[in-house]
Design a protein around this nucleic acid. Structure first.
Length: 420
RNA sequence: GUGGUAGUAGCUCAGUUGGUUAGAGCGCCUGGUUGUGGCCCAGGAGGUCGAGGGUUCAAAUCCCUUCUUCCACCCCA
């Protein structure tokens, strides 16, 4: 029924699936809280310049993927394409610029106008974390460790962590020159994209997937040598802290990342169970300079793709949720019995039981089928006869056994059998 | 954005070289005697064959347009 399909790249999440989302979210909450993080909920849209300035005008995201619109007051607003910029905008209302640390996580929809593909939607969901206000290599490492811990709790094994350092802004000049000098003579053999990257953002050449470009990139000089001693030492300390935290990693000099705000540490977690889009999470240390701020705000964080995490769990057979039926299904024969069941349902639900019942005048067989379909553990049956004698029949669905008990003993029996 | 793929019942799909009331499995509903589910059996409901236009005596089947899906590139989560 294509008529009722949602807009391209969006999806409806039905209850059975939503259960998995909820579980994933609660795992995130549980893990992050152990590291002192609380949830920050920011708007789904911001002033456009928050992203323009925050992410960098030259980024792919800002240039051609944002959902930007004018509101009725003529303001230019943009549906958030990622979480960090909005979080920083929000935290600028605190003391982060004076070195006061904020630990927050966020979750929710992000919007990017891309062509949908496996693991890529226009509305997708991220769970992300930001540690803002302080600069210390150990914080970078702890952040990464928390991400790996989160994946572990989700039952995601076999993920691989790659990391690199982007140095600070002052390192980009000398290191960029080194790259420019190296790439210039090879430009002729490289892809058109890289030709423009050479002009606009030479670093992006490093993670070009074209074979011809990769061949050239393979011989790139060690640009870390052009970084300042401080920057190199910062990265060293990140690595040592990761060792101390027992987090396995792999250094990757070609890892850059598409957002301009990164400095020092950048990292990405991929999983081979995924296809074209193999990144499940990514992040790094950043400095976000928002309009009207006196100076850039420092932080370190990551974002994980919820859909992708779920896909990996699928592939690994992790995170399966057993079907949960009602605790008890009420069957009533005759108007009076059904009415009695209706009021009983209210009472049992207040006791915390999951109760289902048939309210229409259906045959006994049809009602039993209903009980079976809903995977109910127990069925309560009563007709006019039982009603008159104030008795109910309690049936155990797994083995079909049943017993007749007094109405007033019902709760006691259910409690005795651990149903509630 | 570029390229490829597909679009038939709630779901997964079949539909021969265009030919009469478009099928299957699963699911759903109702029964298989008076109050007992899951298995089995019988019957039933449910489709403007994604949409629009065209060719034809005749189109789910051919042509055009359009929308949507999935996938790759790209980019990233």
């Amino acid at each position: 029924m294509a008529n009722f399909s949602p807009p391209p790249g969006t999806a409806d999440i039905f209850p059975a699936e939503a259960l998995r989302w909820q579980r994933l979210e609660s795992v995130a909450r549980a893990v992050f809280s152990r590291y002192g993080y609380g949830e920050l909920r920011t708007p789904m849209f911001e002033y456009t310049e928050v992203f323009q300035r925050g992410l960098g005008d030259d980024t792919e995201v800002v240039q051609k993927e944002m959902y930007t619109f004018l509101d009725r007051g003529g303001r230019s607003l943009t549906l958030r394409p990622e979480g960090t910029a909005g979080v920083m905008r929000s935290l600028l209302n605190t003391d982060v610029l004076n070195g006061v640390e904020q630990r927050v996580y966020y979750q929710g929809s992000m919007f990017r106008g891309e062509r949908p593909a496996a693991g890529r939607r226009r509305e997708f969901h991220q769970i992300g974390v930001e540690n803002v206000g302080r600069i210390a290599p150990e914080l970078d490492a702890e952040n990464i460790a928390m991400l790996m811990h989160f994946l572990e709790e989700l039952g995601i094994t076999g993920a691989s962590l790659r990391l690199n350092t982007r140095g600070v802004m002052a390192d980009r000049g000398p290191a960029g020159e080194m790259l420019r000098a190296y790439f210039l003579p090879h430009l002729g053999t490289m892809c058109p994209d890289c030709q423009t990257r050479f002009q606009r953002n030479i670093w992006r050449i490093l993670d070009c997937k074209q074979q011809a470009c990769r061949d050239v990139v393979a011989g790139v000089p060690d640009y870390l040598a052009a970084y300042s001693a401080d920057s190199r030492q910062y990265f060293e300390r990140v690595l040592r802290a990761l060792d101390a935290l027992k987090v396995p990693y792999e250094e990757d000099r070609f890892l850059v990342r598409g957002l301009d705000y990164y400095v020092h540490t950048v990292f990405e977690v991929t999983h081979s169970a995924l296809g074209g889009q193999s990144a499940v999470a990514g992040g790094g240390r950043y400095e976000v300079f928002l309009p009207e701020a006196s100076r850039p705000a420092p932080g370190v964080g990551f974002a994980a793709g919820v859909e992708r995490l779920l896909m990996v769990q699928d592939a690994l057979g992790a995170g399966e949720i057993p079907a949960e039926g009602a605790d008890i299904y009420l069957i009533g024969l005759g108007e009076a019995a059904r009415m009695a069941n209706l009021s009983l349902s209210a009472e049992l639900r207040r006791q915390g039981l999951r109760v289902e019942l048939e309210v229409e005048d259906k045959s006994f067989k049809a009602q039993m089928r209903g009980a079976n379909r809903s995977c109910a553990r127990k069925t309560l049956i009563r007709g006019e006869d039982e009603l008159a004698r104030k008795m109910v029949v309690l049936k155990e669905m797994s083995d079909g056994s049943q017993q007749e008990i007094p109405e007033e003993a019902l709760l006691r029996v259910l409690k005795g059998e651990g149903v509630c």
